[in-house]
Design a protein around this nucleic acid. Structure first.
Lengths: 368, 368
DNA sequence: CTGAAAGCGCTTACAG
DNA sequence: CTGAAAGCGCTTACAG
């Protein structure tokens, strides 16, 4: 009653959308507390009263003010993601949008919102503008947690986020990654995926293969390279590596570098090239065509990421299909758990499956 | 002093990140109001006091609580976007991520945040799940405005958003679209872009062309179709249309339908096909190849959207390059204006530029 | 220029 | 089961 004077009357009688919990309570002749308990499914109100509150709220289209609730509960109801990649890469690699879709699906199931920020690409070893965003989000308590992509060696983000006490999940961390306080990992077994690729090539008779990776500063690229090396060696195969930057153009250049000066069919000429993503694979394919090197006649190619690019290219590019949306779902679920205080150290992503396409063929045995 | 008892002491002495404006004021021996004025660049504090406040805030890493500020200012500091497209389409068409990047760039310059939601795709004529999101966001006052994509005829979103009093910008509306209350449009002159495409084809000697569009329920597709028809007619050309759904597979099917039963070179056989997006163009290219129809030997193809797909395909697919990031920037700037109450009805997007590639060639003149 | 106070719209112990 | 009150952390008239 008191303090509810003119403002309360306005709220009660105003246009839709201005309803407050005080307005609901006033119309029903109950206290705000009772209305709150009813609306939040908490004990403390009788069944009939609860029903009346819910009915009126639905009728008036009442929703709790997110800021009032956030202020009183110290929870924003939002999860943040900072992407530190160029718009070109974000647009052309379906990975990001797909994992975002998976994340969003889980968040919205739990009435959480996704806050997205894009900053200038981070050069792998140097900390980027994203750190400022985390500091600010934490300070403003604008998000309840964050999901982090593209970990690199000696990455300063986990420590920063722990210090900020901001729950975080690192997507695609190494199997043996140690979670930081307030942190957890969705891990990808790059070794297992490398084995899948290498074994398929070995089965096809390939004995000398190349891997054109993304930047080696990224932990998952280092892990892939090590995995390829280990499994190839185990099977008696030899390897050659070249690092690139995930773009089609540079993937083409790296490809040229790998085969430069080598005669097709010579022992040093790799009979298969594995690429760290789809763009580089397509760029490599073009570079090979331009040099008159037949795919898969002279060299087979395989991409570590599947996408529509691989499917629509000609020849179609064989690729390791990973359930990227599931990676997003797992990461979001893990973050929600971490925010709730149930800390699970890590969740593993399902292994990839090789989709064979025209670009992958067996080697024609050479007579000695 | 009073009320600052134990809680105030905790704030003052607690770990970093728990600082409040009351804590700052207490340490400096001034009132919260003075601290607030200093922090917000408002008049009402002396220069030296202001400097001391700013210095302490920086030292302690203080940021205003977003929820407290939102509650007292009735502004959330966030802009919302609901994408009602399949993850596959969002991932493979670079349009969305690119326009998002443009939007985000402007928002973050203005210290605004982007809230992203993805819902099940909307069937053009039927209202989708996105309406519920808007109602909820408006009710919770979680966003200060929204940016809307993929308008269709008789779209119920503008009216709903007006009724909710939620500022909104419709991206890529028709030139003559009327803004609703609280609304504004970024318009695209589809007629001008259609003219660019049709005239290039006319110059190449094409006289009978096809347009494989996206769903006709979308206003911009209806406008494109009308634009192509009008300009072709004006130049004495004839046209044939087929509607598809923006996917590569269906684009292939639509292509097959357009040429079904027609002998290459016959008068009814279109010598050029324009596609509403890059995926359908690539799908069309594959379908044509499969039927032994040479591109550009027998038929030229052009995409209305440029992307890496067009660039990396072989043959490269000619495409209308539009400044998608700029479309995002313009839309975000327009929304911020609308939120601020300076209503500009609409802002026009710059016209597209045709990027010619191998898929586009002139017609070999037939002797009668 | 500065301080005490009210208010934004919720939630949550705490008494009845 | 219900109500009055304090508190979340800001902003903003309103007096001095």
């Amino acid at each position: 009653m008191n303090g509810g004077g003119p403002a309360g009357a306005m709220n009660g009688g105003g246009p839709a959308g201005k309803v407050t919990i005080a307005g609901l309570a006033e119309r029903l002749g109950i206290s705000k507390a009772s209305a709150s308990y009813a609306l939040n499914g908490q004990p403390g109100v009788s069944g009939p009263t609860r029903a009346r509150v819910l009915a009126l709220a639905a009728e008036l289209g009442w929703y709790p003010s997110s800021s009032a609730r956030a202020l009183s509960q110290s929870r924003s109801g939002a999860v943040g993601i900072v992407l530190a990649r160029s718009p070109e890469q974000l647009g052309s690699e379906s990975f990001y949008m797909t994992v975002l879709a998976g994340i969003e699906a889980v968040l919205s199931e739990h009435d959480m919102n996704l806050m997205l920020r894009m900053v200038a690409p981070t050069e792998a070893p140097a900390p980027g503008r994203d750190l400022d965003v985390y500091r600010r989000w934490a300070g403003e308590r604008r998000v309840d947690g964050v999901i982090v992509f593209d970990l690199f060696g000696d990455d300063s983000r986990p420590q920063l986020l722990s210090r900020l006490r901001l729950p975080h999940v690192m997507v695609g961390a190494a199997e043996d990654a140690q979670p930081t306080p307030f942190g957890a990992n969705t891990t990808v077994d790059q070794g297992a995926d490398a084995a899948t690729l290498v074994e398929a090539l070995h089965r096809g008779g390939h004995r000398h293969i190349a891997y054109v990776s993304g930047p080696l500063g990224l932990t998952h690229e280092a892990a892939r390279r090590a995995g390829i090396h280990a499994h190839a060696h185990h099977l008696g195969m030899t390897t050659v590596f070249s690092a690139s930057d995930y773009t089609a153009d540079d993937g083409g250049k790296a490809t040229t570098a790998v085969v430069a000066g080598l005669a097709v069919g010579s022992p040093d000429f790799p009979t298969a090239i594995v690429y760290g993503n789809d763009l580089m694979a397509i760029g490599g394919l073009r570079a090979l065509k331009r040099r008159g090197i037949a795919v898969p006649g002279n060299v087979s190619i395989v991409s570590w990421d599947d996408s529509i690019l691989c499917r629509l290219s000609s020849p179609g590019v064989a690729a390791l299909a990973r359930n990227t949306m599931e990676l997003g779902r797992l990461s979001a679920a893990l973050l929600l758990d971490t925010i709730a205080g149930h800390q699970r150290a890590s969740v593993a992503m399902p292994a990839g499956v090789l989709h064979s396409r025209e670009s992958l063929a067996g080697v024609v045995r050479q007579h000695p």
